[in-house]
Amino acid sequence: MHDRSRPPALPNRYPDYDVLAKRNGESWNDKTREVIAERLAVTATPLFFSASEFLLLEAIAARIVPQPSSRPPIPVAALVDRKLHADVADGYRADGMPRHRDAWRRGLRALEAEARAAFQRPFVELSEATQDELLRHAEAGELKAADWGGMRCEDFFKRRLLHDIVLAYYAHPTAWSEIGWGGPASPRGYVRLDVNDRDPWEPAEAEPGREQEAARINRHVR
């Protein structure tokens, strides 16, 4: 089985690219600037979760989307918290699943109970490998503590926990820069659409050993 507890080996494919360098340019309209400014202003203080729930969520988010220590972290847990605070829903739920807010509260409580039952420790005090092991059991539908109620642990893991955490991470400009995405694009859009084509306002991908060339281009992406 794949060892999930190792840190990500992130190649620096788009060196020195910062999608936020474009925020005052022609690729961002006012509405986009407003929305992203709000997102960037999110602080790590929960508005929806309790302090202990929030610590647990932070620990889980660090396992679902582990981040390199070489840059400021994306506040994944806080972004999930804000979405729940704003009561943004998906539009459906599985039979037996509570609505999103209740599902999160119940799921966190159940995961904590599972950690204490299996390892006699709070989840946040477990090793990363053990945390991953517990999350894998949730993913596989193997957790049966009474706290789950009628909610299947695999539904909570896949439809709530994984879904909300992954979307939160890739809602952040830091993640956009990491994967070399052009980012917001209204009204300028793009001109060069074909294979290996790149507009001057898109990041250049570094060929191995030639990172400096790409970095030089990427510092001028606006």
């Binding site: 794949h2 999930r4 507890s5 190792r6 840190p7 990500p8 080996a9 992130l10 396992r63 679902i64 989307v65 582990p66 981040q67 991953d132 999350l135 994984l162 992954v166 991470y169 890739y170 993640a175 990491e178 994967i179």
Partner: peptide, 9 residues
């Protein structure tokens, strides 16, 4: 999920 996801991305 985990390292495999952010690497694959």
């Amino acid at each position: 999920w985990g390292a495999r996801l952010v690497e694959e991305m």
